[in-house]
């Protein structure tokens, strides 16, 4: 009985010591805070870049799908076909290779001269990666709008671009907003591989602590917990968003 109590007390004391060692001593928690800041920075930047790229690629691809067959052969059709080919290639390459490999190629091959700006490289690499997935989300949103909406817009005298802007995109965007928000959540977790290029993100913060204190359990668990809380928080926001959107349809 006594021995058992002692071992519990030892275990508790041990836990407290490790906690202090990992997070309190030398203000090591700041390594996580700084990492979390960078994780957010990279995720946010990559999301914005991804949406920008995704919208452009989605517009090219859906415009090609909807109009190329009826176009007169000429310069316009040639340009559209060319852009469509480039977009397809982009989607195939980006979605066909691991994001970690893309990140390392960006860091060690393409942007060697930018090597000290790891955050920027990560934003570019994850943004280009995310853009491919966002493009397919937005394209499916555009294609899901009934063709009658296009026809109604065109029959009033709107040209193709005006029909997209005033009629199709507002509806499509509403439909894909939850999927886009999910892409943001996925990206938060995906950016954890950026410690491979030495970027001080949240995961790297935990890694630095581990390498200094020679304890793995506490820092890695803390990192996992922080990711979990953030993801749960944003998932909850998406659920609320989805409900709002459903309600606004009346």
């Amino acid at each position: 009985m006594y021995l058992y109590q002692l071992s519990i007390r030892d275990w508790w004391q041990d836990l407290k010591d490790t906690f202090v060692l990992n997070f309190i001593a030398d203000d090591r928690y700041m390594l996580l805070v700084k990492g979390l800041g960078n994780t957010f920075l990279v995720t946010l930047g990559a999301t914005l870049l991804g949406i920008l790229l995704g919208v452009i690629v989605a517009l090219v691809r859906s415009t090609y799908d909807k109009t190329a067959a009826g176009m007169h052969p000429g310069f316009g059709k040639f340009i559209l076909s060319f852009l469509n080919k480039v977009s397809s290639l982009y989607l195939t390459v980006i979605r066909g290779t691991p994001v970690l490999v893309q990140l390392m190629i960006a860091y060690f091959v393409i942007f060697v001269s930018l090597a000290q700006h790891k955050t920027i490289i990560a934003i570019i690499a994850f943004g280009i990666n995310s853009g491919a997935y966002v493009a397919e989300i937005i394209r499916s949103g555009i294609m899901s709008i009934d063709n009658g909406q296009f026809e109604a817009g065109r029959s009033l005298g709107f040209n193709y671009a005006q029909t997209l802007i005033y009629i199709i995109i507002p509806q499509a965007f509403k439909n894909v907003l939850p999927a886009l928000a999910n892409e943001f959540i996925v990206l938060i977790k995906e950016t954890s591989v950026s410690c491979y290029i030495g970027l001080h993100d949240l995961t790297k913060g935990g890694e630095i602590i581990r390498s200094r204190t020679y304890t793995a359990f506490m820092p890695l668990l803390a990192v996992a917990l922080i990711y979990l809380v953030i993801v749960m928080f944003f998932s909850r926001l998406v659920t609320i968003l989805e409900r709002r959107l459903r309600n606004s349809e009346r």
């Binding site: 009934d146 009658g148 909406q149 109604a152 029959s155 009033l156 005298g157 507002p170």
Partner: peptide, 25 residues
Amino acid sequence: SKGNDINKFRQKMGMVFQHFNLFPH
């Protein structure tokens, strides 16, 4: 004919569809 802007003519030709096609948003 190819040179004419069809959008201009469509402004003068209203159309009513079987499925209404009102803009739901």
